[in-house]
């Protein structure tokens, strides 16, 4: 298991949550504690064990390529914290992420 020192600010940046200094301290400690408990898993030898992503095996669940109804735009834009005309509006985008 890796070290329990968590760069909580980096993680919060990835998760896009602003943290106060106090939260950084409290969450940092709590997550460290939790990872301490998680450490117990290293007791188990899992080298030859397959990972379970889904517990009930299922394959090839696909839909037919058919179109059905969409939401009404009025309803869609009603939800928006901010809309402008027929669009959702957001503050300026600083850097291209993709």
């Amino acid at each position: 298991m890796p070290s329990q020192e968590i760069d909580i600010r980096y993680v919060a940046k990835l998760a896009r949550i602003a943290l106060t200094d106090e939260e950084v301290e409290v969450f940092g400690r709590q997550l460290g504690d939790l990872l301490g408990h998680v450490e117990a898993l290293s007791e188990l030898d899992t080298a030859s064990i397959a990972a379970t992503a889904q517990v009930v095996e299922s394959r090839n669940v696909e839909r037919e390529d058919v179109v059905s109804g969409c939401l009404e735009r009025e309803r869609v834009l009603e939800m928006a914290p901010q809309a402008q005309g027929v669009y959702f509006r957001v503050p300026r985008i600083i850097a291209e992420e993709t």
Binding site: M1, I6, V11, L41, L44, T46, I49, A50, T52, V55
Partner: peptide, 29 residues
């Protein structure tokens, strides 16, 4: 917030195998 942070951490680069994949293997057990 706590759970989002711990989950983000468990999936982040360098920790994914040690935490997330490990947990999925224990899930198998």
């Amino acid at each position: 917030k706590r759970r989002i942070l711990i989950g983000t951490y468990a999936l982040s680069s360098g920790y994914y195998d040690a935490y997330y994949v490990k947990a999925q293997k224990v899930r198998t057990l």
